[in-house]
Design a protein around this nucleic acid. Structure first.
Lengths: 227, 227
DNA sequence: AACCCATTTCACATTTTTATCACAAACTAT
DNA sequence: ATAGTTTGTGATAAAAATGTGAAATGGGTT
């Protein structure tokens, strides 16, 4: 079984090593680069499955580096952004299968995002591709079962798909429109509030811990709470 | 009827009994050992077909136990690992036909893995391997016969193929489309509901225990129920 | 042709899921 | 604090999916 190789490009040494530590701990193998130039060298010589790329870097910005990488490679890229202000810029870009993480981030968030992106890219994120674990929740895509704290929870079709979509977009705020479009289909005509009802039942079934947070004025976000 | 004997080596009592329950429910016979030493004793005195071995154990680690077992036996071993961090160690080992399961696992996943490993290991013209046992059901691929609770049950072609496909995709939710495509052929044109009728007759013939579950909005799933 | 059996289709009963509404509660901005 | 939004939720109606008995179809055999 082949290891997943991740290239981290960030000018801050501390951040590089922090990310490396998180990732190595979860069984990924890391290559580090302090700037775009070093990154290109690694890309030339190693097989990289995913790139984590800081946006704010002195010489070339992350966006510039991304553009240059994209000339030759279609490797998924996850952006790291330091401040909230850059979010929308990243959002603005239509990045396809890619994603972005805002600092500071938790190990769990980082791993979840990476797995989600790898899953979308069709790579085997973890060996049992069928299973996703998020906190006390274990989702089995193949069996279409969900276990919460080691006991099986029965979900309906829509509930299951909702949870799966949240898992694939871990820690991202998702609008009702987005959810309806991806789970119900873009031809869905009906009330946005339908989502609310399903969120309600999902919350109930997933138990006391509030995995699904309300993002006021936007929609919902799935995240494992840190106690 | 030939029983498949499985030896479970794990220091945690709860985990031993959980695994035992899962396995006994699927028609396997289990021996339990709390450490390597106890395991060796069982191996000396009993015929074991497969070993489930926890990696993280206080005295001897699972890896050490594995090495000692391998000096004398070539019985397939499935590792149990508790944390993500150990994955890559397991990955690193070239374990041949063996496998590993990451906790927490679902009953379905465990059974599916065991079946897969047994099938791979069974390349040694051992006629027991054309047999698949799932709970009270024993399927003989070669003879194309099915026994439920030790008595022969006559299945039609489609019923048998359906059951076989379920067995080969144990604990997976399968859509009517998937079933039609693989059993009837992808050129099949007709009602999806045809599947329902065959499920109905299969359910009837397999007896009271509900092996075939309905997965609402998707299709069906074959699984031995835990009482 | 008549028969047997497996397979498919159909129609209707039953069950489960989904969508909507109305009102309560929570939040935001002034 | 107050008005105006937005979200939470229980109840209920509507829709969709499944279970099932019976009838129709089809292929092969006597």
């Amino acid at each position: 079984m082949v290891q997943t190789n991740i290239l981290i490009i960030d000018d801050e040494e501390d951040m590089r090593h922090l990310a490396e530590m998180y990732l190595e701990n979860s069984g990924f193998h890391c290559y580090l680069a302090a700037n775009g130039q070093e990154g290109y060298e690694v890309l030339k010589n190693k097989t990289i499955d995913l790139i984590i790329l800081d946006i704010m870097m002195p010489d070339e910005s992350g966006f510039q580096v991304c553009a240059r990488i994209r000339e030759k490679y279609s490797i998924p890229i996850i952006f790291l952004s330091a401040k909230g202000e850059e979010w929308d810029k990243v959002k603005g870009l239509q990045l396809g299968g890619d994603d972005y993480i805002v600092k500071p981030f938790s190990p769990g968030e980082m791993i979840a995002r990476i797995q989600a992106v790898l899953r979308r890219a069709g790579l085997t994120a973890n060996d049992t591709q069928s299973r996703i674990q998020l906190g006390e929740i274990v989702i089995d895509r193949m069996a279409r079962t969900v276990m919460v704290a080691d006991s099986l929870v029965a979900l309906t079709l829509k509930e299951f798909e909702l949870l799966l979509f949240f898992a694939d977009h871990y820690a991202q705020a998702l609008s009702r429109e987005q959810l309806l479009e991806h789970i119900w289909g873009m031809d869905y005509i009906g009330s946005l509030r339908t989502v609310d009802t399903h969120i309600k039942t999902l919350r109930m079934k997933l138990g006391v811990a509030d995995y699904i947070q309300t993002v006021w004025g936007i929609g919902y976000k799935f995240e494992v709470q840190i106690k």
